[in-house]
Design a protein around this nucleic acid. Structure first.
Lengths: 365, 365
DNA sequence: TGACAGCATGTTTACGTGAACATCACGGGC
DNA sequence: GCCCGTGATGTTCACGTAAACATGCTGTCA
């Protein structure tokens, strides 16, 4: 940028004409209406304008009206930069994330934004295009200069495990979906419980074992679901089939489904999210394996569409709204108490929503 | 506008009168490290620190190193409030929207965030919980005090048609998905073309006419799709069946599907989005109406999951990323040229993606 | 009636940054 | 040897706001 305004000496371009009046081509870089401008028009001091703007007492009715009229006439809007400078805070929370496209993220962000708004905070999004170390590092660095009072991180924090990267000191931070509970304040869905619920449900229906389609290896949520799946099987003394690897997309679930359809012993599958479960349903349908009579499917997330899959999907419900709420709660606590990030993990419970994609296994011939 | 809000919450700057180390343990009060602090440690003036921080020339190597070392030692981070105050801009774009949950919105926002980031801008989200006049008005008002240089509006702007509401003057603004092209700069998907493509596709396959499931009445996108659907049928001289009304959700599509399954003359349906199309597929499946052999279904959006519906869905592809890109382009142009919002509508083209949910109508007995 | 309480309003100042201007040291040309 | 140009660095100031402090006026009570 090149803000070389030679004529920026002028302290107040007013003089009667306000915006378009003067013959000056292009309003240059003059700030818009300030308190001083309003004060001049209203014939009071700028401090009185400030008092009126902030609803402070001690301004008599007539004066107040005069000031308000001047504000309206000039279209005064408070300058939040100056205000932030004065107060030392922005009333803004930064959210670092990798992609809004994933269902969970957008719902979590929405909840964060909503709850933050209720507390008078706005949300600033810092998206990471590709989650490489460099990009993440860059985002954290930029973070430092960003106009935010606190940060919520919704990326796989273990990308930062190299240890060379640390959040700028003094930044309040809450992390979602991570194993960094020993270093940061973490809010997370109880992935393990959810996966266990899914597996137990299928075993209780009488299935010998449960196959699993994972999410991407880089996802901590996926890792934990897979781990809990394995554990639940082992605890029940069941064989643990080799997991299939997906990438969250329905297409990858479809590919896994085509493979699983060829496994005669496979009667139950737990997919690490609903999209992949959708892919499974399609594959099984195309291969003539009836769901749920021939094979059962359980997903994870409980996206709104899941109730209209064919058949409606049994899945683990995640409370994204609650995750968002607790994130906001967490950072606000830090901001207000002034403390640094307090390590620890908060788990948001899950619940199983049983629909029509699960049933007892077919009776063996 | 009414800048006279309720008393603003002011975090009392604790401590005595001076910045000196008031022995208060709950060290909330003072700003963090400033240039002056760095300057003191490095034994230079704060202006020199500023030069180093901004990479300006004219600082000799040794001095620069000294300053950098001091910065590292103190953990200096520039104060963006002061910077914004100085420069008169925030490098931030505000996005007003109603819910990220809708597929389109989150993808558009993601694209906006990505492109904005590439230009050095961050995104501030202002969510509107329930799109009542009051809430929208409130958001626009808050907008005025927000730390943003421009605004992108992704709500049904006709909510504001009362005319009592206007954007704060001087705010750069781009609107998505709206009929306000005469007042604002608008970027929109070519809804009409998309709907026409869908209808033409079905008619070309030999269907006598096409039924339609709309989105909510408050949605301008839905209105335009419905209008284009009607027009395409009329142009072809076909009967126009009564439209069924949904609310974007799969469940509402399911309800519509149950109704349509009872219409023997219905052989083709155009749903206003993919979620509702999913609901249709479920309903038709449950009612034994085979898709596409008994009845054809076309959606709108081309969500990633659509390729794994049963059967894979023929749908109209929306280029959300392009919409986001143009929004950013639009506001940046306004910011740089300094002009106000220039009325006009930019249309982003759509294309039909043919999959397996459409086929010629069954031959009449 | 005078001193003072109480309240409306004005004045000063600091917040952190960076442009514009000031200063200072050094070296080369005359 | 002196002057001046050049380049490094310091000083001043304004950006818009609001707390702290100062002023000035009104009315009241001893």
């Amino acid at each position: 940028m090149d803000p070389d305004g030679p004529a920026r000496q002028v302290p107040a371009p007013i003089g009667g004409a306000q915006r378009g009046g003067s013959g000056i081509p292009g309003g240059r870089r003059k700030q818009r209406v300030s308190m001083a401008d309003v004060a001049r028009l209203a014939g009071v001091s700028s401090q009185t304008v400030s008092r009126v703007a902030n609803g402070h007492p001690g301004v008599v009715g007539a004066t107040r009206e005069q000031v308000l009229a001047a504000m309206r006439e000039l279209g005064y809007r408070p300058n939040s930069a100056a205000r932030a400078l004065r107060y030392g805070q922005f009333n803004t929370i930064g959210v670092i994330l990798f992609g809004l496209a994933s269902t969970g993220n957008s719902r979590t962000v929405e909840a964060i934004a909503t709850h933050a708004a209720a507390e008078g905070y706005a949300i600033t999004l810092i998206p990471i295009g590709i989650p490489t170390q460099d990009n993440v590092l860059g985002a954290f660095t930029r973070m430092g200069e960003l106009a935010v009072d606190a940060v919520i991180v919704i990326i796989e924090i273990h990308l930062l495990d190299a240890g060379t990267v640390t959040l700028p000191p003094g930044v309040h931070v809450v992390v979602v979906d991570s194993d960094a509970g020993d270093r940061y304040s973490v809010v997370d869905t109880d992935q393990a419980e959810g996966a266990r619920l899914a597996v137990r449900h299928l075993l209780d229906l009488g299935h010998e074992t449960v196959w699993h389609v994972t999410g991407p290896e880089t996802s901590f949520a996926s890792q934990r679901r897979a781990q809990a799946w394995r554990l639940a099987l082992e605890e029940a003394g069941r064989p643990v089939p080799p997991p299939l690897h997906g990438d969250w997309s329905a297409e990858s679930g479809y590919a896994a489904g085509l493979a699983l359809a060829g496994e005669p012993g496979c009667t139950a599958v737990f997919a690490s999210n609903d999209q992949m479960a959708l892919g499974l349903l399609r594959a099984f349908h195309e291969r003539g394996r009836a769901v749920p009579d021939g094979i059962s499917v359980v997903g994870f997330d409980d996206i709104p569409d899941a109730s209209c899959f064919v058949p409606p999907l049994t899945t683990v419900h995640q409370d994204f709204a609650e995750v968002g709420r607790r994130c906001v709660q967490g950072v606000l606590r830090q901001i207000r108490e002034g403390g640094a990030s307090r390590p620890g993990t908060e788990l948001v419970p899950t619940r199983l929503v049983v629909r029509a994609s699960t049933a007892p296994p077919p009776t063996r011939p």
